[in-house]
Design a protein around this nucleic acid. Structure first.
Lengths: 229, 229
DNA sequence: GAGTGGTCTAGACCACGTT
DNA sequence: ACGTGGTCTAGACCACTCT
């Protein structure tokens, strides 16, 4: 008796995965569940709320709680720092700055980050290696309107990501995953052939509605991003 | 006064994104926050707990609550049914079964799903179209050990995904994202050229520790998966 | 109108980890 | 040992939304 919210959550999840409560069906309301498990309604509430957050059930006032028809709704991905990602695999991390430039933001970047007309940006191209083998190509753009101090920062020894996380918080971000063919530049840096299929992520970050940075990360051929849920 | 947990959460998040509470610093404990916001400790607890779930802060008993050094920790992705994904874009969905076969599980599949020695599987190849244009290529394998009724199911009119979600719950899944070059088969079905870079997801699903299905979904060239957080 | 989940409270005890 | 978060309770009122 006196079940914890974890007990309640586990038991309900069990009933769902075993098919006792079928997809689409209504489960008992909170008061009934509280009696069943001999606990307070708040305890049941937390259990069921977490199941709803996880996408297992759907709740509506008055209508009650239903088991979702398609329970798998979302997956969570950790987005690690490259260095940590590589070191966690037991490999030695090495960083190299390939190119550095200050220039007016090109049109495509202004559109993507909603930048003003004459915004200047810092453009960095970097490489990340695992045990000396090319691991990731980084194409980074930093707004100098918001981060003028980036102009003076030294990116020859460590990557812009590490500098950025220490320098500024952020409030909003957008991330995309896609596949791209390697162009000559990518092929040269990643040690593959032009046209090879590469996994790429793109991330835009804002702070208080103002663009901070855009980055394009291109992984070596064969890279995969995996998660369980 | 008498703030809600949303108010508290929003205000703390604001203090973090504005840099009032810097990355790595300790924030006031729950009792102090409850006094500050003039609410019960449980209210503060929920607010801070949700921030911890979102990866913004890190909590440890006795040590207190700290702002995370690298706040961006995770992103959530919705994993929609193809049909819904296409219809949500305002396009007309069409499905086609390309191939159907029953065979002993090949070695690579047995390894991936941890199947027994002589497991039989149902192999389906399907296409999903948006407004008549190839959208996604589906390579589906279903274990007939656990789902013998799949042998008799009709997959000529609707996809295996829709059948599966209605047929069986699941308890565990693994998903991967990667980039692959199109082979001749993929190129023919997706209307692209062999070697084109394609975005692919792979998903394995288990129920009570037993493999249900493995699926490889290959998107048309240029597809991207995007989320905000 | 009535039934359901959504939230808050004031207090209590517990579990953990730092000191 | 002690301070912190983790959780539970019993009750209350509110906000939706279905009928």
């Amino acid at each position: 008796m006196t079940a914890t919210y974890r007990d309640v959550k586990a038991d309900i999840l069990d009933k769902i995965t075993r098919g006792v409560w079928a997809p689409g069906s209504l489960i008992p309301n909170e008061v009934e569940l509280a009696e069943t498990y001999d606990c307070a309604r708040a305890t049941v509430n937390r259990a069921v709320r977490e199941l709803a957050d996880a996408g297992m059930v759907e709740r509506r006032r008055k209508a009650g709680t239903r088991v979702r028809m398609a329970p798998v709704r979302q997956a969570r991905f950790d987005i690690p720092l490259v260095r940590k990602e590589i070191e966690d695999r037991g490999a030695r991390y090495r960083y190299a700055l390939v190119h550095r430039d200050v220039l007016p933001a090109p049109d495509w970047l202004r559109a993507r980050l909603k930048l003003g007309g004459r915004a200047e940006v810092l453009h960095l191209v970097c490489m990340h290696y695992a045990d000396g083998i090319p691991y990731q190509f980084e194409d980074r753009w930093i707004s100098l309107e918001i981060l003028p101090q980036a102009r003076e920062a030294d990116f020859s020894q460590s990557g812009p990501n590490e500098w950025l996380v220490a320098e500024i918080p952020f409030s909003d971000a957008e991330i995309s995953f896609l596949a791209v063919p390697a162009d000559e530049t990518l092929a040269a840096h990643l040690g593959c052939r032009a046209g090879d299929a590469l996994f790429q992520t793109e991330r835009s970050t804002w702070w208080q509605g103002r663009a901070i940075t855009f980055v394009r990360l291109c992984f070596r051929p064969g890279h995969r991003m995996t998660t369980r849920y």
